[in-house]
Amino acid sequence: MKAFEPKIVGFLCNWCSYAGADLAGVSRFQYPPNIRIVRVMCSGRVDPLFVIEMFIQGADGVLIGGCHPGDCHYMEGNYHTERRVKMLKKVLAKSGLEPERLSLEWIAASEGERFAKTMRDFTEQVRSLGPNPVAGEKPNLLIMESLYAARNAVEDFRLRTLVGKELALVEKENVYDEKIPQERIDELMENAIDEELVRTRILLLAKDKPQSVKGLADKMKVPSRDILKHIVTLRDRNLIRLEGIEGTTPMYLAQTQEVEA
């Protein structure tokens, strides 16, 4: 077997980190060839969905490069990125993937050498984590399924609203001219991630075949009590319905039109 060569995707912002990467080249700083760079105008453009999608597609690591705090060409795109990455790391961890596979680095246009070093370090870091468990011939289905759920979760308005508004709510003011404490947002975010991941996983599992609360609890390693609560909420939103009762066990089926939408 060949030695493991991590596949890494890098999203670099045009004005700082992409320029930094160019400078590394101009200066002939050497680094391993594992990264495939995607240029974006601002790190703020990196939708959480892209990151999850990259991992689903088998990337072993994802690196996001942005401007140093205060340097963003678009004023505060990088701050938003910072909060998104924080959220994404939580989502990855909860999905069973090492959050260290995702890295956010501030790299200035002048930091060619730092860019090269970052590439060397991150490649090593990912190499030490080993291959992405969902890549290859025998993907880890539990993690794969969690990542699918995560993809739906980060598309849901709830996580997007929270992460999108976090900066404004914590640093500036909300609609009542008040600041929301970071802890409050962290707590809300933590709960929202937990809940949305479980809900999206339930919907995926119950998409084609009716599922029971206990069955879902066993498959997902989540207490039945919590599964039931989520089913109540999903039912309320017309995302799942009672399909029938087998013995004493109600069976639920996801309402497909809504899942696809």
């Binding site: 609360v213 206990k214 039945s224 009590r225 039931l228 009762i245 004493t248 066990t249 109600p250």
Partner: peptide
């Protein structure tokens, strides 16, 4: 009427 612990009837 379902059991809150496991959703059984």
């Amino acid at each position: 009427v379902l059991r809150p612990s496991d959703g059984e009837v």
